[in-house]
């Protein structure tokens, strides 16, 4: 694939820088765990209703955590004028999008791999062995949507006066449809109830459509967002 080399180089660069500073993943991780503890206190974790709320808690925590990473991701590019340097190069703009988007996706997943087991233990939830596949798929579909919409909108927000304050205002309302579906999907899977599983799969179909639409939109529009 042409351009694969450039996409990989952008991801690699972000990962190397992150491995050196560790500032982003660590703060995301601390934040997500804090969010879970706060939820457990605010909603009284002992109640059995957690099976119903589980999916919601999980995604609210992930959503807010993802915004920490999304904001950081372009601060690095902007700070020493690197974005300008990147734009002066002949590299296609959509490649920059896919590089940054995949980087954000990877960081989010690293955090989730650690956070999800903690979440399940803290809230005493179980996922049947046969449902682990769909559960992972639902998480992945949610993550793809978050990182594609998030990367597009954080590129916009970083270029506004209010910079990182702008991201939640633009990002959260646009992501709500995905959030609704993601909560339905993971909630249904966590409950393990057969009827709820049906609606969980319907929700996952919606998530797939949402992901594809916004990946295409971001691909088509990124040139206008990042260039001048």
């Amino acid at each position: 694939m042409s351009g694969g080399k450039q996409i990989l180089a952008i991801i690699k660069k972000d990962i190397i820088a992150e491995l050196r500073t560790k500032e982003m993943v660590i703060s995301m991780l601390i934040f997500v765990i804090l969010a879970m503890i706060i939820f457990s206190q605010a909603f009284n974790a002992a109640e059995k209703s957690l099976v119903e709320f589980g999916g919601g808690l999980l995604w609210v925590a992930f959503l807010f955590t993802s915004m920490l990473g999304l904001n950081r991701s372009f601060v690095h590019e902007k700070d020493e004028g690197c974005l300008e340097g990147l734009l002066m190069s002949p590299v296609d703009r959509p490649l920059i999008f896919f590089g940054k988007m995949l980087g954000n996706l990877i960081f989010l997943m690293v955090v989730e791999v650690i956070a999800i087991p903690i979440f399940l233990v803290l809230f005493g939830l179980n996922i049947g062995a046969s449902l682990i596949g769909p559960f992972v798929a639902a998480i992945l579909l949610g993550n793809i949507g978050i990182s594609s919409v998030g990367t597009l909108l954080s590129t916009i927000s970083i270029n506004t006066k209010t910079r990182d304050l702008m991201l939640p205002i633009l990002f959260l309302p646009i992501i709500i449809p995905l959030l609704i579906a993601a909560v339905g999907a993971t909630g249904g899977i966590i409950s393990g109830d057969r009827e709820q599983l049906v609606s969980a799969y319907a929700a996952m179909r919606f998530m797939a459509v949402y992901d594809i639409i916004f990946l295409l939109v971001a691909y088509a529009l990124y040139d206008f967002v990042i260039g001048e």
């Binding site: 080399k5 450039q6 180089a9 952008i10 690699k12 660069k13 190397i16 820088a17 050196r20 500073t21 690095h76 700070d79 020493e80 004028g81 690197c82 300008e84 340097g85 990147l86 190069s89 002949p90 590299v91």
Partner: peptide
């Protein structure tokens, strides 16, 4: 236009790939 958290060589390698 350089990434502060990358080494000199890594910076050049990155931009070299872009070009």
């Amino acid at each position: 236009l350089l990434y502060l958290d990358l080494s000199a060589e890594e910076n050049l390698k990155f931009y070299g790939t872009m070009y």
